[in-house]
Design a protein around this nucleic acid. Structure first.
Length: 578
RNA sequence: GCACCUGUAGCCCAAUGGAUAAGGCGUCGCCCUCCGGAGGUGAAGAUUGUGGGUUCGACCCCCGCCAGGUGCGCCA
């Protein structure tokens, strides 16, 4: 519908140009938007206000000229000029009804696949090896995964990239410790507590000189490609990712083992990149290190910032890895667009790496690099989030607590669900609530970690959306669905129908901006409108006549399908009962 | 010191430069003789940190200031 109006207005502009009212080269940037208030119609444009100056007339007069030039259409009931020169379009309710009927027949709910699919690399989750995922990892993981689902739904080719922290000097220490553990216990090692593992290794490293010495030797051997160290390193990666995969599965995150593309993958590219930058004069030796100076970034002394590509000892830092990574994604993965879901602290560093990658021609201008940054998770004291003992809260602990709270809630209010059903409800509601708490926020600011707000089941939460869905399902347990012509007889029906038609826009916005909260907001508003409709408009009551019932059932059906599809794009499952 | 991010009601949070700044939590009311009360419905609560500027129109864009967070050469 929006496109239809846009076309009408473009025709109108062409008409004005033909009549000499506007110059040929003028390309006005006007908008057509959904109105917030029904009294301003369903869609509104600011076109008159945008072009009135060029025409030398009052905006209201121009608006009237535009209205007069728009041909009559059975899709539009009424067009009005309002306020400072808005043009408000009132859609014909027959047309809206027929669109809803069409949606009920379309598994994609009217959302079209893109005509020019892109290859999009999405970098998200990125846990560290030999560490357990903590609560803050949920942001990148859950938001990235939702954007992945949306992009795929729209027809793009998506490459999931789990940029696991699997490289660095700490691996000497970890290998030495793993070796010690294996020597001490006869059977194969099963590390259930990675946090404790890492901590103990660190303690030993700090206190035992002999151990530290061995650890340092192992780093060198690992980087040199030594078989033994390589194998031990692999074990560490394996151990960690098996545990992380359990979390992904539990959270319904679509990452798989084959999506792991860790930092170590780019290792073999680093020396070549350093050499290339040096040969082309982009990098120079400074105090023994190979450095690229960037004019657009200033260091502490106010001079162009030096970004170290190669350390004076010949080693590499993570900036070089990120340059290589971007290069790889362009050259090997043929990315058209690369999205990084990484916390805001890395922003400067990423910009530097990308600036170098662009200058070197590794990433051409037409490939877009986007940092989808978000703030840190803070404790109630406003400091980086730590537990009383100084550690972090494990993600698995948060998920356990979520399930416990849902279990308690079910017990509290009593439930006639079977044990099997209950288990499913507990799981889906708990995971939904936790994920939605993060997905629904756009905030690039830091935010306070709070059990209660993260595990709320009231208001703008996933359980509310899941609940709306179960109410719809409940309707269809009582009546067989036969799609019928949709006749919008009351304001509640009209508002609901109009919102349903905007599903595609919400989905497209998420893909464009990498912000799933736009879809959350949409689904929450949709659920609210459904609840209101449902209270006001009986569907199954005996005094409702058949035509009205068929119409309302179709609205219920399309709402249910939209909720189910929308939630699935957020990685959240619906339930038949709860 | 420099750079990046952020500032909206007691708390959380939304708003492609558009109309009366939208919701949620909490607070105070009302609603199960009717399809599921994890609900509906109403009320109170905001000089959008601050001072300028651009614009027909600014939470949004530009400049100054204040406050918070983060980052700034050999960790990742």
């Amino acid at each position: 519908m929006k496109q239809f109006i846009q076309q009408l207005l473009s025709d109108c502009i062409a008409d004005f140009k033909a009549k000499g009212l506007l110059s040929q080269e003028f390309a006005p940037r006007f908008t057509v938007e959904n109105t917030k208030d029904k009294k301003n119609g369903d869609l509104a444009t600011n076109l008159a206000m945008v072009i009135c100056k060029k025409m030398g007339r009052k905006p209201q007069d121009v608006a009237q000229l535009i209205i007069d030039s728009i041909p009559a259409s059975d899709r539009i009931a009424k067009i009005e000029m309002a306020g400072p020169g808005f043009i408000n379009f009132f859609m014909s309710s027959d047309h809206v009804g027929s669109q809803i009927y069409a949606m009920s027949q379309d598994p994609r709910l009217g959302v079209k696949q893109v005509s020019a699919p892109q290859t999009v690399v999405v970098d998200y989750s990125s846990p560290n090896v030999a560490k357990e995922m903590a609560v803050h990892h949920i942001r990148s993981t859950v938001i990235g995964d939702s954007v992945v689902r949306v992009l795929e739904f729209l027809g793009h080719r998506v490459i999931r990239a789990n940029h696991v922290g699997d490289w660095g000097t700490q691996f000497g220490m970890l290998i030495a410790y793993l070796e010690k553990m294996e020597n001490e216990s006869a059977s194969d090692l099963e590390v259930s507590d990675l946090e404790a593992f890492y901590r103990s290794a660190k303690v030993l490293y700090d206190e035992d000189e002999e151990f530290a010495e061995r650890a340092r030797k192992y780093v060198v051997r690992l980087q040199g490609g030594d078989d033994y160290c390589r194998k031990m390193w692999q074990k560490l990666v394996q151990m960690t990712m098996v545990q992380n995969q359990r979390i992904y599965d539990r959270l319904n995150v679509s990452l798989r083992p084959e999506n792991v593309m860790g930092e170590s993958m780019y290792n073999s590219m680093l020396a070549g990149i350093a050499e290339d930058l040096e040969n082309r004069g982009m990098a120079v030796t400074d105090q023994g290190a190979l450095v690229v100076f960037l004019d657009e970034f200033r260091g502490k002394d106010g001079n162009p910032m030096g970004v170290i590509i190669r350390k004076s000892d010949g080693g590499f830092l993570y900036t070089t890895t990120d340059i290589a990574c971007a290069k790889y994604r362009v050259e090997q993965l043929h990315a058209d667009r690369i999205l990084y879901f990484i916390d805001s602290r890395q922003h400067d560093h990423l910009m530097q790496a990308w600036a170098i990658a662009r200058k070197a021609g590794y990433v051409p201008a037409e490939v877009s690099l986007e940092h989808e940054s978000f703030g840190m998770m803070l404790g109630k004291d406003g400091r980086p989030f730590k537990t009383r003992s100084g550690g972090t809260v494990k993600l698995s602990e948060l998920l356990d607590e979520a399930e416990k709270r849902v279990t308690d809630l079910l017990a509290e209010r009593g439930s006639d669900l079977s044990e099997e059903e209950k288990e499913k409800v507990v799981h889906e509601v708990a995971m939904g609530a936790v994920k939605y708490a993060d997905l629904s926020k756009n905030r690039t600011t830091d935010y306070i970690f709070d059990w209660d707000s993260m595990l709320s089941f009231d208001g703008n939460t996933a359980p509310y959306l899941q609940y709306a869905y179960t109410r719809i399902r409940s309707v269809f347990r009582k009546t067989e669905f036969k799609p019928g012509e949709v006749v919008l007889g009351c304001p509640q029906e009209e508002k609901l129908a109009l919102k349903l038609l905007q599903f595609g826009e919400a989905v497209e916005q998420v893909a464009l901006k990498g912000m799933p909260h736009l879809l959350c907001t949409y689904l929450f508003e949709l659920s609210g409108l459904f609840m209101t409709f449902y209270e006001a408009c009986p569907v199954n009551r005996s005094d409702v006549d058949d035509a009205v019932r068929a119409s309302r059932l179709t609205l219920c059906k399309v709402t249910g399908d939209t909720l189910k599809t929308g939630l699935s794009l957020l990685g959240i499952n619906v339930l038949e009962k709860m």
